[in-house]
Design a protein around this nucleic acid. Sequence first.
DNA 1: TTTTCGACCAAAAAACAAAAATGGTCAAAA
DNA 2: TTTTGACCATTTTTGTTTTTTGGTCGAAAA
Lengths: 194, 194
Amino acid sequence: MTVSKKAMRDAIVDAARYIFARFGYRKATMDAIARAARKGKSSVYYYFKNKEEIFLAVIEKEASSVKSEIRNALASASDPKEKLTIYVLTRMRVFHRIARFYSSFREEYLKEYDFIQRFRENYDRYETKLILDILREGIKKNIFAIPDPVLAANYFVTALKGFEYLWGIEEDIGKLEKKTEAMLEMLYRGILKR
Amino acid sequence: MTVSKKAMRDAIVDAARYIFARFGYRKATMDAIARAARKGKSSVYYYFKNKEEIFLAVIEKEASSVKSEIRNALASASDPKEKLTIYVLTRMRVFHRIARFYSSFREEYLKEYDFIQRFRENYDRYETKLILDILREGIKKNIFAIPDPVLAANYFVTALKGFEYLWGIEEDIGKLEKKTEAMLEMLYRGILKR
DNA sequence: TTTTCGACCAAAAAACAAAAATGGTCAAAA
DNA sequence: TTTTGACCATTTTTGTTTTTTGGTCGAAAA
């Protein structure tokens, strides 16, 4: 792929991002996307096979930007415990922001589309692996004591999903962070008296 | 209310339970409920104000049976830690069974109906209070060390909701229980090395 | 050769109207 | 006190037409 072609794809993806965010997947029309990219509809098809491919490109870009943001936040920490805290808080913050941007998706039930389901599963795997790595590092450094790290990693991801439910209720991200920190502290120390 | 009238209400509720379970709230017709109760449709209206009231009666009965089942399971335990484990496991088991019975509700978006939302909030309060009581008992008995029990109780309820998501994936209740126990153990002891 | 786009089409969605089903009422019968 | 059929306004469903939309293609532009 030539350099300019890649640049044009990027421009279309950026335009599509706004259209998708505003109208959701179904109601975002190819025509609107093309117009936002200041191109004819047919031209868009020169760069992308179909709507699905554009949408995938949009969320892939989004995901890679999320990953890089998390990687960035994580870079400042060396202690595994700190890493875990930063990861969870950053993850929460970023997803909260994204959920706001793609507001029209709240109602649309995207679980129906299997290509999105596959994407989600893929992201879950990435997340589980990342947490697992932190846990293992902590075990190696003799900071964590976890009998079954794989299970623990899965637990984290599940609990994180549970928190997503909270986002719909608690709008104030400050309060949400406070709560999350307190819950993490509980998870670190356990609730049994030592 | 006379004795027989109460009995008739019960019979209608039982009949309605099956209809609702089979068709969901919207597609369950008053006529079908009446026929299941071997009554004319108008007769049903002699006992209940409207559809909503019948449905509320059904889930209230369900909830009270859940509560009694949990109370029953809890009776065998005296140790707060054991209580908490039993509570979570029983809760999971019972809800798993109920979710199976009301299979048609999986798709139906009941969150729209505000009278159901109110019911759910009510149940959440009950659950939070119950867990809070266990936690406080544990603190009193010097078994738990929890700085903020109210927050901790809320955390439990949230995490429990997160698990609900798992039920859709993991069908095998045996595996689910194993996972849950392991996660609880993690929560009890914490993941930090002592 | 690479890129753009107007014209075009089949399929999907939206709009609309007619028909059927449903929640709820009521007066009369049991 | 309890039961029910007849009844009705409102919703839901169904069938049909119209419009929109995703996607193709060949020709023009660059």
